[in-house]
Nucleic acid binder design. Sequence first.
RNA 1: GGAGAGGUGGCAGAGUGGUCGAAUGCACCGGACUCGAAAUCCGGCAUACCGGUCUCCGGUAUCGUGGGUUCGAAUCCCACCCUCUCCGCCA
Length: 424
Amino acid sequence: MLEIQQLRKEMPQVVEGLLRREYTFDEATFSELEAERKSLQVRTEELQATRNAASKQIGILKSQGQDTSGVMAEVAGVGDALKANEVALSALQDRLNSFLRQIPNIPRADVPAGKSADENIEVRRWGAVRSFDFAPKDHTDIGEVLKGIDFETATKLSGARFSVLRGQVARLHRAIAQFMLDTHTEQHGYTEVYVPYMVGPESADGVSSLAKFKDDLFKIEGRDLYLIPTAEYPVTNFVRDTIVDAKELPLKFACHSPCFRSEAGSYGKDTRGMIRQHQFDKVELVQIITPEKSTEAHEELTTHAEAILQKLELPYRKMLLCTGDMGFASAKTYDLEVWLPAQNAYREISSCSNFEAFQARRMMARFKNGAGKTELLHTVNGSGLAVGRTLVAILENYQDGDGSVSIPTALQPYMGGLSKIGAV
RNA sequence: GGAGAGGUGGCAGAGUGGUCGAAUGCACCGGACUCGAAAUCCGGCAUACCGGUCUCCGGUAUCGUGGGUUCGAAUCCCACCCUCUCCGCCA
């Protein structure tokens, strides 16, 4: 959510900033709502003040045993007018609020303008892409040879976009998550957290726009709960409606959780394999910090995600997303894309964003600054990394042609010392 | 699932129709005392929003949430949510 003060005072800059991400700000509706809000609010508060003064007067008179009928007659008409104004004001504030909550964040000045992922900018590449002396299989075929990925059973259980993992592949999947969590907690200073996998609407609307994106979420039948599409939802909401002591900052959390996404609108995309699933695991990194630290924290958090790829020796590139490819709440996003030999392409494996105060304003997440004033926090988060896609990347990049797959050195301790898993 | 208790400021806790945004204590921040600290004393100390002649003044709202009664609600009524205790069931 944008700051309403900013809209009142710096409208041209806001309009221009949003236009860079192809969002046309509806100035006419805004000024209309604002004008109406102002007159209603002023009128309502005047009536309330009148009523309060009269009521106080009645209280004083009664305590002195004096007659109150005069004052009573004076306020007699106030009640109905006040009620009408209050109802109208609250309806209008609801409208204004939902209007504001569906406006996306303003991209930072250093975010390139662009319409789609094609216009993202490559910041750098890391790692040498391996050349194979055989035709590399994709992870689906490798999984089949290893008898480790079973889409058929998953489909029987739950339909499309689910997977069943077995044996050493299932173990590898677990090892990857453990390795990531350990790295972030032991080397990057994050606190491990375990969280609910369902959240209420306030939490969902705190980090994104529930009104806009509820179709992407799975809702629990008969309950006002949503399955989380990322641990960002519960973890960021730790600070919703709270004022954090500046001494406790920065808050750095690492969370391994499953993620559930309906993938509405992605029909026909990545239908083969486990690239795009309704359920996948992810280790999420979240930092909650003061405004002046968020730029630095965002860069730092991205390197924490990169560190995982480097330790696993997986080639990747770091992309600066253009305005058109950024998420609703983000002011600036880096994507990390891992090399997948079977696709002969880099594919997203992490997304690291700086939301500045956008989520904090939605959540009323604040801190007391040095001067003792409350100020909105900044939030930064990123995947460190998507576990399922990391599994895919390892299977494909570490395949050995005979159907076996080598285990990256960093993961071997998590695999009971195994250096290779072979065909069953 | 059954029975009961309760939700008040950062925390503890008083307040059961009127000058209550709310006593008191703790915590916290200033100041005094002190060589310094502790103790003590003095003062300050919620949040959000609105208006204006906008480093200041004025106003409004908020005592779990939403409605109701009333000139006036933390206080009375209704509904809902949540927490705790006991019993039952259960991984």
